[in-house]
Design a protein around this nucleic acid. Sequence first.
DNA 1: ATATAATACCTTGTAATGCTAGGTATATTG
DNA 2: CAATATACCTAGCATTACAAGGTATTATAT
Lengths: 113, 113
Amino acid sequence: MAMNYKNWATQIKKGYLELCVLSLIEQHDKLYGFQLIKLLEELGISMKEGTLYPLMNRMTTDKVLIAKWETKEIKGHPRKFYSLSKSGTKLLQEMKMEYQSMVENYLKIGEGK
Amino acid sequence: MAMNYKNWATQIKKGYLELCVLSLIEQHDKLYGFQLIKLLEELGISMKEGTLYPLMNRMTTDKVLIAKWETKEIKGHPRKFYSLSKSGTKLLQEMKMEYQSMVENYLKIGEGK
DNA sequence: ATATAATACCTTGTAATGCTAGGTATATTG
DNA sequence: CAATATACCTAGCATTACAAGGTATTATAT
């Protein structure tokens, strides 16, 4: 990315990261925050803690996600696991459709001409 | 889109619209603002005037775009045509690569499991 | 004549969010 | 006992899509 406009990468991630997080939780049933960051990293998607944790709290407040602390069976810092609520599942389906449209619409730009 | 989180559609468009605009200008060589909005609309992409014009001015100031007024040969309100600068062309290539990565990375989420 | 609509551009202010840069706490390793 | 890794959190900043307003020109309808 060029020196100027290096913030474009930040901008285009808005919404996209939300979709990635919800999709990963759907796929794994439940995940905790730190684990999500590692999973995304493996996929080539960089999401900082300062981005993820506020997002998880927002989505929990909005009842898109259900959060549960787990302290048993593990040592170290307790982990907060997230799973999709019913409305979260529905929201994700809508997001996927919208995302799919965007990808297809952009493809049309390349095809035309 | 659900009642809540209806702003997600707004958020995910950040950066995406910039990519669409630059790609369309590259393909058509030159375009004016109002025309861009109509073109995007035809593609299924909604971009409001209050979004487009400030963006075009930003990118002109940053020398990503070159702007030229055209008043001859047409009646009605004068039109401001935009074309890609050299650095704009380079920036667009970088954006396309980044976008491609994002699309591919998200595909991996669906594939894994 | 004179509203109305369509074209074409612009600006102010708001809401939302990714990230930086800090912080806290627990457990392990040198 | 310092350093590292894990795991969560927060305040403040920079950025951008949009709503809602505006200006100006031409064509069309009343």
